[in-house]
Design a protein around this nucleic acid. Structure first.
Lengths: 154, 154
DNA sequence: ATCCTTGCAAACAGTTTGCAACCCT
DNA sequence: AGGGTTGCAAACTGTTTGCAAGGAT
């Protein structure tokens, strides 16, 4: 288990205790799985991974635990232009933005400090606190561009 | 009917004819309603408006017509961090971005030329054609900030 | 007359929830 | 022991689809 994962577990347990919630096998196993993998995953993916690797957990528990993790700030939940939510672990200083292909759903991550700074200023102007910023650019990825016939009038 | 709406209708009819589709009452009425109102609306809102104003149209037809309008570039469809899609008419030169409150779902529109330019450059770097850019910033609006107790560890 | 479109209701996908059995503390 | 938690299945929300009746060309 990585150092980050260990820290996350500690924080999660702390959060659970503080709120009179139980530290269960399922919750710890889910947290571990989330922090042991790459970036984006949706509930089904997580469920499948749990089924194959650690331990069987019900779909309901997956959703309920993800909810808890979002509430305590260890995971962020977004809807990137597609049909379902996806989740990703929060990493200290691991800020990044997303670019989403409107046709294929492909997600590209990128980071641009200038952009970030400008965004924060814009948020300020609108009295909007950017506790976490997640940009979503809809566009067409390379692959999609090949298939596309454009029909834009304006 | 505004000039923009008229132009949209003309283009829509042209699009329909070119594709061997029929110019029906329902389609025209839906287009008119979309172009006669403000910015964002979801399928249900549109359905409700049709029910009260012009003419009853079925939910299925609403979705099917919206699809057509998206395909011919007169309407854009996004998912702004929330549970359903929303649609908005395309206006020539009416580019704008969205900021979405992660808590309340409130949508703020804004425009920032610098930001736009920077985004286009980033898209280029990733071989991503931004046929339309729609940023989504997740954050907390003023109202939500009042209710919120922060629990962010990182 | 032909073929497309509509409306209905059923199907669907992803997510949420009520409840009895179960597990943490 | 007690109260939160799990798993199951049913409920739910938003969207899509099959099919018979109706409308556009």
């Amino acid at each position: 288990m990585s150092k980050l994962a260990q820290r996350a577990q500690k924080l999660f347990i702390q959060y659970l205790r503080e709120n009179n919630l139980k530290v269960t096998q399922e919750r710890l196993a889910l947290l571990e799985e989330i922090f042991s993998t790459g970036e984006h995953l949706d509930a089904d993916e997580l469920l499948a991974r749990m089924k194959s690797k650690h331990r069987k957990v019900s779909r309901a528990t997956v959703y309920r635990t993800l909810d808890l993790l979002v509430q305590c700030g260890l995971v962020r939940k977004s809807r990137l232009g597609r049909e379902h939510y996806f989740y990703e672990k929060m990493e200290p200083g691991g800020g990044h933005h997303h670019m989403v292909c409107a046709a294929t759903g492909k997600i590209i991550e990128f980071w641009d400090a200038d952009l970030d700074e400008r965004l924060r200023r814009i948020c300020q102007e609108h009295n909007f606190r950017p506790n976490f910023i997640s940009i979503q650019i809809q566009g067409l990825s390379e692959e999609a561009q090949k298939l596309e016939q454009e029909t834009t009038f304006f």
